[in-house]
Design a protein around this nucleic acid. Structure first.
Lengths: 124, 124
DNA sequence: TTAATATATGATCATTTGTTCATATATGTA
DNA sequence: TACATATATGAACAAATGATCATATATTAA
């Protein structure tokens, strides 16, 4: 085929384009920023270890050591993952002496996981 | 620190472990399989281009050419992404002559996206 | 202050990912 | 049949990812 990628507004009258559908899709599309943010959110939840962390924190707050033991990786690895989750504001922590207790920032993540879980269970 | 990762059932009495929390987390944990499947689902939704595809298909079925034009990448790239989404059964297609029209397999994906979007909007 | 604990962070590296390019397959038409 | 169109697929490669290791920081206790 060997074609260069099409520009956003370029039309191509030599292909099976449904121009009106593309146009409608563009009009109803998420903003670039929203799309990026949404994708980042799903991506953060899309790693097995991070998902285990989120699932565990949905039940009870835990410290880094607990989480490391729970999911079976080093504390450093957990800490790196928690940083990502913190940056996306999916988790928060409170300090009690030297220990940081992590928890879910709000219940949105929990809702998403449970909704997705329903999807899985209907699937099979 | 320089420690080897802890095994699933290994205890460590020299750290800040809350043994009962770890135990509870293990008891309530998702099965390994469910965790993997869930993560795979979120991961699939966690790429900007795939998310745009899913969002567009939530409105109307579209062919590969349409999608390529819509998100501004090559048809080959779209086809590769659609394969992933197909393998996870997030999208399905119907053939009409030489053209494959893609659509969302069910409305779960749509629900997930909209729920996540609410999360974003409350966030800001 | 010194030492120990709990966590964070930077560098490194192997693996994974997403795109492109080239090619293959499938359908329709002349 | 031959040819064009629509899509799929495999190889290759750059970029992103996630873990580990070594080290740094923060808190507490001696």
């Amino acid at each position: 085929m060997n074609r260069t990628p099409l520009e956003q507004n370029e039309q191509c009258d030599c292909r099976c384009i449904h121009q009106e559908r593309v146009q409608a899709a563009k009009e109803q599309a998420l903003t670039a920023k929203d799309n990026e943010l949404l994708a980042a959110l799903f991506k953060a939840m899309g790693d097995p270890n991070r998902l285990q962390i989120l699932w565990a924190l949905d039940q009870e707050e835990m410290c880094v050591c607990d989480l490391a033991l729970f999911i079976g990786v080093s504390e450093s690895a957990v800490s790196h993952q928690l940083r990502q989750l913190r940056q996306l504001q999916l988790v928060s922590n409170r300090r009690q002496g030297p220990i940081l207790y992590y928890r879910l920032t709000d219940n949105h993540v929990s809702s998403l996981i449970h909704l997705a879980l329903e999807h899985l269970q209907e699937e099979i």
